[in-house]
Amino acid sequence: MSHPLNLTTALMLATPPFLWAGNAIAGRMMSHLASPFTVNLIRWSVALLILLPLGRNVLRRDSGLWPHWKRFVVLGLLGVGSYNALLYLALRTSSPINVTLVGASMPIFMMAIGRVFFGVRFLPMQILGALLSVTGVVVVLCRGDWHALLTLRLVPGDVIMIVATIIWSVYSWLLARPTEPAAIRKNWSGYLLAQVIFGVAWSAVFATGEWTLGQPQFDWGWPLALALLYVSTAPAIIALGLWGAGVARVGPNIASFFSNLIPLFTALMSSAFLGELPQLYHGAAFMLIVGGIVLSSRR
C-alpha cells in the first residue's frame, strides 16, 4: 500500500534522477570508447563486487530469497541487464538531452501498464498530465518543428530509448508488487544484490552476443576507466537502492513523475561537460513535461 509523499521520500526520489543524468553524460562520453553491452556488463560486475560484502546475508539458504528466485531473475533482466544497456546503445546515435527527454514519456507507460496488467484506475487529471508530458516528448522527436511530423524520421537512439522506458516502467510496477518477505526488502543492499546477481548473468549473455555477432569496441584508458567507475557506483548502487525504496513508499505512478527531473539535470550537465547547449524546443518540451507533473500531482 502506498503512503503520502513527504519531504524525506521526495528527496529519496529526486536523488536518482540527478545521478542518472550523470549516467547519461558518462554514457555519451563512453559511446565512442566501448560497446554498450560491454559497458553494462563491466558496470554491474563492479557494482556486484561492491554489494557482495554489504548484502551477502541475503544469499544464505534461510534468507527467504530462494523461493522467489524467478522473480529476481525477471527484475535482474529488466532493471540491470536491459535498461541501461539500451540507454548506452541509444546514446550512440542520440544526445543525452534527447534521450532523457524521450525517457520522460514514462508516466504514460506507467499508467498504461498499471491499468492493463494491474487493474489500477487513474484520475482524469492524471491522464491529462501524462498526455501533456508525452506532447513534450513529441516536441523532442520532431525537433520543435511540427511540420516535421509529416515526414518524421526517428533517430535510432530515440526509438531504442522508448523501448528502454517501457522496460523500466514494467520493472517499477514489479517493485511495487512484492511477493518476497518484508525482511528482504528492508535490507536494501541485499535486495539490490539479489537483482544484480541475476542481472550480471543476463548482461554477460548480451555482451557475449555483442562480441560474437557484432563489431565490439573497447579502447581502454583513463577517460573510460573514470566513467566506468562513476556509472558502477552512484547511478547504479545508490540510485537504484533509493529508487526501489521510494517506489515501495509511494507507488510507481507518483515516483515516475520524478524521473522527469532527469532532462533538467541532463541539460545542465550537457552544457557544462559536453558543450551541447539546449535548444529552444528543449525548453518548450521541458515546460510541457513539468505541466504534466503539476496536473498529475493534483488530487
Rank of each mutant, 00 (worst) to 15 (best):
R298A: 14
F258V: 08
P4R: 03
R177A: 12
I262Q: 10
L91R: 02
V170F: 08
Y83S: 02
M29I: 12
Q279F: 07
A285I: 13
W168F: 11
Q126G: 13
T151D: 13
G81T: 03
S256Q: 08
G27I: 06
M1L: 14
V163I: 15
G209S: 06
E210I: 00
F117T: 13
C142F: 10
A204H: 03
L261R: 05
W220M: 13
S297H: 15
L277N: 13
V137S: 08
W211Q: 05
N84R: 01
G55T: 05
G76E: 06
W66C: 08
A194T: 11
P216A: 04
W173S: 04
F198D: 00
Y230A: 04
S2R: 07
D145H: 10
S105L: 12
Q195A: 13
A176F: 11
L54R: 07
L152P: 02
M12K: 00
T266W: 02
M30Q: 10
F258N: 02
V134E: 03
P17I: 05
R153F: 05
W173N: 08
W20K: 09
P17M: 03
N253Y: 14
N6Y: 02
F286G: 08
M30P: 03
L268M: 14
F273H: 08
W20D: 01
S95F: 02
M269Q: 12
R177G: 01
C142L: 11
R56M: 12
N98W: 02
W222R: 14
P263C: 09
G144K: 02
G114P: 04
G114R: 00
G283H: 10
Y88P: 01
A285Y: 06
A21R: 03
F218H: 05
S95C: 06
R299D: 11
F206E: 01
N23K: 07
I42D: 00
A148G: 14
G241L: 11
T38R: 00
T93N: 06
N23W: 06
P107N: 06
A130R: 10
L242F: 15
A267T: 03
V139L: 15
W222K: 15
L123K: 15
F273Y: 15
P16W: 07
A236N: 04
N84D: 03
N98K: 08
K70E: 08
A248M: 04
A164I: 03
L288T: 02
P107I: 01
L128V: 15
P16E: 07
L54G: 09
D158H: 07
F265S: 02
G241C: 13
W202T: 00
F257E: 01
T208Y: 00
L52T: 04
G157F: 05
P223R: 03
P17L: 06
